[in-house]
């Protein structure tokens, strides 16, 4: 019970002090809107194309929303040494890291549904497999957050966190099959696609929104969950190795 009091209060503090600040809320709305408009202008095919680009916008909103904030929040607290106070609290390290990442996961999920809500005003989404989509958005959010955690633990400065995040994020967007089918990528890049978590999340989203998945959703979600466990495990090991020195 005492551990959960700590968990809840860490989550509440992070939401209030970092995630629910006006710049983050406006980012969550403007980012998907800007990408949607960019695709409209580029394709010139009007609103009919919204469904085809929706999986990409959803996945990017989640990916950018989670990785950028979490890496910055943790690096900032580490630099201010307030993170030491959390490490010295009598909470298991796993619970502490889950508490620190839960805020980013929730914001990622919320960011992922912003473009869906916008699209609902334009096109009919009644045949979307909502269960699959919610599971995909949730697991993309968790895996992206844990990727952000991995980045945060690997660097010491806020600007390094941003740079290192971009090193992962941008290649991932182009290699995961969101905008270009993996089969259309040069043969040398295709194996890279399969080591990216977003590839599996994107496939579930394609299936849920456009019934165009390459693999069964259960398999994709299981692989995504596997990525989450690996990222979390590696991050915990790195915290123990680097921060409890």
């Amino acid at each position: 019970m005492k551990t959960w009091i700590a968990f809840w209060n860490i989550l509440k503090k992070d939401m209030r002090n970092y995630y629910l600040k006006p710049p983050n809320i406006s980012w969550g709305i403007i980012f998907p809107l800007a990408w949607t408009l960019m695709f409209f202008i580029k394709s010139g095919s009007g609103f009919g194309d919204v469904r085809s680009i929706l999986p990409g916008i959803v996945a990017m909103s989640v990916l950018f929303g989670t990785t950028s904030m979490l890496a910055v929040v943790i690096t900032f607290e580490k630099k201010m040494r307030s993170y030491e106070r959390l490490l010295l609290a009598p909470i298991p390290l796993e619970v502490l890291m889950l508490a620190k990442t839960s805020g980013a996961v929730l914001i990622g999920i919320a960011n992922g549904f912003v473009p869906v809500i916008m699209a609902a005003f334009i096109v009919d989404l009644s045949d979307v497999a909502w269960g699959e989509m919610t599971a995909a958005v949730t697991l993309i959010s968790v895996s992206s957050t844990f990727l952000g955690l991995f980045v945060a633990v690997s660097v010491s400065e806020v600007f390094e966190a941003q740079t290192f995040s971009n090193f992962f994020r941008f290649p991932m967007v182009f290699l995961c099959g969101l905008f270009f089918p993996i089969a259309a990528l040069p043969i040398i890049l295709q194996p890279l696609s399969y080591i990216l978590p977003l590839t599996y999340g994107a496939d579930v989203l394609h299936g849920a929104i456009n019934q165009a998945a390459q693999k069964p959703p259960g398999l994709n979600l299981a692989i995504l969950a596997g990525f989450c466990i690996i990222f979390f495990g590696v991050s915990i090991r790195n915290v123990q190795r680097k921060w409890i020195y």
Binding site: I5, A6, N9, R85, L86, P90
Partner: peptide, 28 residues
């Protein structure tokens, strides 16, 4: 533990900082 630098959360006020630290130790 009082470290060699004052490392509470700058964005929280005095009361919130103390209350948050109490929560870290499971205080209701």
């Amino acid at each position: 533990i009082v470290p060699d630098e004052s490392n509470l959360w700058p964005e929280l006020n005095g009361f919130e900082n103390l209350s948050f630290c109490g929560a870290l130790y499971g205080m209701r």
